[in-house]
């Protein structure tokens, strides 16, 4: 079970969190022209790197905040955790 440091609550076990996938994907702005291709890329394409992965978790059984976690997908080592509004 992973041990994730919630930037709001501190170190907690993984079972308090739920996973939210790739955190590097930016939702296109509302009401802005966007090509089909760019939109589909946003909805469907994922880099899924082997190694460092910036991803979202929600502290669902805690503060309910979405947080960003930099984790190594090969070793599961967590390198950094950030608040939703922080950039790596």
């Amino acid at each position: 079970m992973l041990h994730i440091k919630c930037p709001h609550c501190g170190l907690r076990s993984q079972n308090e969190f739920s996973y939210g996938g790739d955190a590097t994907i930016k939702r296109p702005e509302l009401n802005k022209e966007i090509s089909d291709k760019d939109w589909d890329n946003f909805v469907y394409l994922r880099k899924s790197p082997r190694g460092k992965h910036l991803e979202l978790w929600q502290h669902i059984s805690g503060c309910r905040q979405w947080i960003k976690v930099e984790r190594d997908t090969l070793t599961h080592e967590i390198l950094k955790t950030l608040k939703a509004n922080e950039e790596i």
């Binding site: 739920s18 939210g20 939702r27 979202l56 929600q58 669902i60 309910r64 905040q65 979405w66 939703a84 509004n85």
Partner: peptide, 13 residues
């Protein structure tokens, strides 16, 4: 609920 929180916290803070 998670969906709403996602948009409020991450997309449209």
């Amino acid at each position: 609920l998670s969906h709403l929180e996602y948009y409020l916290q991450l997309v449209w803070p």
